[in-house]
Computed example of a mutant assay.
Amino acid sequence: MSYPTASATPQRVLYDFRSDTVTRPTPAMLAAMAAAEVGDDVWGDDYTVQALEAETAELTGFEAGLFLPSGTQSNLVALMTHCQRGDEYLVGQLAHCYRWEGGGAAVLGSIQPQPLEHAADGSLPLDQLEAAIKPDDPHFARTRLLALENTIGGKVLPPAYVADALALARRHGLATHLDGARLWNAAAALGVAPAEVARGFDSVSLCLSKGLGAPVGSVLVGRKDFLSQARRWRKMLGGGMRQAGLLAEAGRHALRHHLPRIGEDHVNARLLAEGLSRFAALTVAPVQTNMLFVSVDPAIAADFAVYLRQQGVLISGVAQQRWVTHLDVDAAAIAATLRLVEAFFDPAKR
């Protein structure tokens, strides 16, 4: 069978599956932002920022929150607050705060990462964690922190594992941080409140601009004394913003209106996975949340990727693809995309 190859000029983007970070503010969100009550957050008098921080903290079971421009800065501030120069944090090889954030902990915080291999379910094996904790000896960096991520690669960490990992950390006097950029997805997949996923951690970073669809921002939650120190690091790293209530109101709107529907993204991901699995050249890994990982027959991978782009469908990768469902791709978009995929494999459908 022959497949279409690259030749035509790409059409406009119809469906963007590259990430759940690509969402656009809804008209209702924009209206809420325009009406936001603002002050100067560096001076500590932006009411809307304070409201977002308090609401996020209450939702996740913590004393307080701190609004930051990005998840990367939120994780970095957390690491720098937990650790001093020369300290070490235990982290997964594929964790965002180790692999995808420019080495900020090491470069800006002088904090040594100790990366560990993940198990198939995304966890860090407990025996490997325990073995990686350094003795109290001047030859070694001081192990101070365990950093986990949930979800990671679209997978939900098993709750029993998280409880055991937190107990291990406590036994060894380690602080704990959770990169909960997609904690909302983990909670939806488990059918529990967000506070259940966050329970037991000393700090959690929560993203507003992924599945929740806000344009900007993350909230770091924890104890009040911890966040008082974190606020100083935020200022030093350039994260102090002025009339940030305009952005914070987008986050408040997302928590009220977009968080309740996040499970729809999981349903759509399963629909997409079922549809793609019909084609022998595509192998789809089991789906837990809003991410699909698709292995494409190498003989057609390049042509398939080019074809999708030509049709206005954006994905990440070529032979190993990632598809992410989100607020801006509904069930109708899934159905339309699957028709385009079918047309690639069956010329009679074009």
Rank of each mutant, 00 (worst) to 15 (best):
M1P: 09
T5C: 10
T5Q: 14
T9I: 14
P10C: 14
R12Y: 09
V13D: 03
V13P: 06
L14K: 14
F17Y: 15
S19Q: 06
S19V: 08
P25S: 13
P25V: 08
T26E: 14
A28W: 05
M29N: 03
A31K: 12
A35M: 08
A36Q: 03
E37I: 13
V38Y: 00
D40Q: 08
D40G: 07
D45L: 03
D45E: 13
D46G: 08
V49F: 02
Q50F: 03
L52Q: 08
L52E: 10
E53G: 08
T56D: 03
E63H: 07
Q73G: 13
N75Y: 02
V77S: 08
H82R: 10
C83W: 08
C83V: 14
D87M: 05
L90H: 02
L94G: 06
E101T: 15
E101A: 13
G102P: 12
L116D: 09
L116A: 11
A120N: 09
D121Q: 11
G122H: 02
P125M: 10
L126E: 09
D127C: 01
A131G: 06
L146Q: 05
A147M: 10
L148A: 04
K155E: 09
P158V: 13
P158R: 06
P159C: 01
A160S: 14
A163C: 02
R171W: 05
R171M: 05
R171S: 14
G173F: 10
T176D: 04
H177E: 11
G180K: 02
G180S: 06
G180V: 08
W184R: 01
A186W: 04
A187M: 07
A187K: 00
L190N: 00
R199K: 12
F201M: 00
D202A: 03
D202K: 00
S209H: 08
K210R: 13
G217Q: 06
S218M: 12
D225Y: 04
D225F: 03
L227I: 07
R232F: 04
R232I: 14
R242P: 01
Q243W: 02
Q243F: 00
G245Y: 01
L247N: 11
E249I: 05
G251D: 12
H253N: 05
A254T: 11
L255S: 05
L259K: 01
R261D: 12
I262A: 06
N268P: 02
A273V: 09
E274D: 15
L276H: 07
S277E: 09
R278F: 02
F279G: 01
A280W: 00
V287N: 05
V294N: 09
P298F: 09
A299W: 03
A299N: 13
I300M: 04
Y307K: 06
L308H: 06
G312S: 10
S316N: 13
G317W: 10
H326N: 13
V329Q: 12
D330H: 11
A333R: 03
A333I: 07
I334N: 00
A335R: 11
L338W: 06
R339W: 01
E342K: 12
F344H: 06
F344L: 10
F344K: 08
F344Q: 07
P347C: 09
